[in-house]
Write a protein that binds this DNA or RNA. Structure first.
Lengths: 256, 256
DNA sequence: GTAGTCGTCCCGCTGACCGGTACGGTGATC
DNA sequence: GATCACCGTACCGGTCAGCGGGACGACTAC
């Protein structure tokens, strides 16, 4: 199920289609599997995959193809995510050290949150998030924060679209969600209570751009229902996010 | 100065040439600058860059082009680096919490170390390393570890090539380096004393593959000469690396 | 043996890609 | 305010890189 159909009439389109055929949890895909997922003719997939290997975007193993380390390197140079990550790391560390729970840094990309960083310890709550992975905005604390600070059009588009149910607690009523978003703007934090995965709770705060009206990213702390009370961490999460906000403002790196 | 000349006679080659024209610290490059760095005709660069934008590998800003978040996402799916990162994070956290110095996770790629993760606090030592960035193997603790466990051919190739001098302390004599590598195999740790940057010291240990003879990656702790004594952390760095080694062996994810 | 799936290779056709060239805008210099 | 240098963008005919149907051999399963 390809996210957005790239142009298959161009080499580049075919190439990225192949690259994006990999999901977060496949390690290695056979040629046949690539053909199945991309819909490309076998001969074409074979050739393009070969070209990708020579260009160090794919690795060839005896079992099939694999996204290469060269691609990792390239991805880490994406300026926005990388500089965000570098600036954020100390703050994320602080949060982790104080809570010893899983800490996330995420940005919004369309209807989804993309996790830029995830740090946790050995006994971290088993969460569905992965670094570089996606989750729908409406069922995560980070997502709600980013949605609350998004431009009205984008916000409206997501609110009007269908809200996928992930757990019995997932908020699928636009009205309820909208009220929560208003609360987020008021309190500067968002909560999530088992809305994306059973047994998990979460609290998030926005990293604001210079004006203070747009959110560049959001920081969250996640823990299991038993030992973890989101309300207990309002202050430190908000403080971390604000600290990062002002640091990011000092070193400007945004754009349109 | 392009790292390795990709094939400029193919669309894909041109595309990756443009992508790789970005170094770790450029945020945004103008079309003219891309033309200058890649050597492509202006019209061609313009077209390919445009194609890259439609394929969400580049972003267009009013100042020029920028590596896109889509590329970051893709890079994070590179299986080796990503699963390594996920497994390693708890161990890196432990190290950071015990030392409060900068902690690195790196793999070898040719003559260089590529940093997969870098974590540190607000007052971290100013090091030249960047997440996703490269450093020569011969002048870093992580590099020496990885080199010591590399196959003899690769090791010999690097030892025989010229060893770039980064600081007055950089080891540029192959014989001396070779003796250090032997010591690494014996002790299971490597040291670096202001060999890559003035004022910085470092200690690293290998993350070994199942057999125990090949290194998948290496973990290091870095600090400033004043407050930081590498010898003081031999045990914990080695323990962290060994812990990760055995965890990685349990969940196999290597390949050829 | 037969039937399925896999990766690889061949090879003639064609349209995607190429890049020299030209144009309009912008800012520096005289 | 004229000139110049440099930028990004757009055009367009020629052609060769890319295309993909099809064939092949290896392997496995029934």
């Amino acid at each position: 199920m390809p996210h957005q159909p790239a142009d298959l009439d161009t080499v580049l389109g075919k190439a990225v289609t192949i690259l994006r055929a990999f999901t977060v949890d496949d390690q290695v895909l056979s040629l046949a599997e690539l053909v199945r997922r991309t819909g490309l003719p076998k001969a074409t997939a074979h050739r393009v995959a070969g070209d990708l290997v020579t260009n160090r975007l794919l690795d060839r193993t005896n079992l099939g193809y694999r996204l290469s380390g060269g691609l990792f390197e390239l991805g880490m140079r994406a300026s926005v995510e990388r500089s965000l990550l570098e600036l954020a790391m100390p703050f994320l560390q602080d949060l982790y050290e104080r809570t010893h729970e899983t800490v996330h840094l995420g940005v919004r990309e369309g209807h989804d949150v993309v996790y830029v960083a995830k740090i946790g310890g050995h006994r971290q709550a088993k969460s569905p998030s992965r670094p570089g992975g996606r989750m729908p905005v409406h069922c995560t604390a980070i997502g709600k924060v980013l949605l609350a600070y998004a431009d009205p059009e984008a916000q409206q588009e997501i609110l009007s679209g269908p809200l996928e149910r992930r757990t019995p607690h997932t908020i699928v009523a636009p009205g309820l969600l909208e009220r929560q978003l208003a609360a987020v703007l008021e309190n500067g934090v968002a909560f999530e209570r088992e809305e994306s995965a059973a047994g998990l709770q979460c609290i998030a705060a926005p990293v604001l751009a210079e004006g203070g009206d747009k959110a560049l990213a959001a920081i969250s702390v996640t823990g299991p229902v038993g030992r973890f009370r989101p309300e207990a961490h309002v202050t430190i999460v908000r403080a971390a996010a604000q600290g990062l906000s002002s640091l990011a403002s000092r070193r400007r790196s945004l754009s349109s």
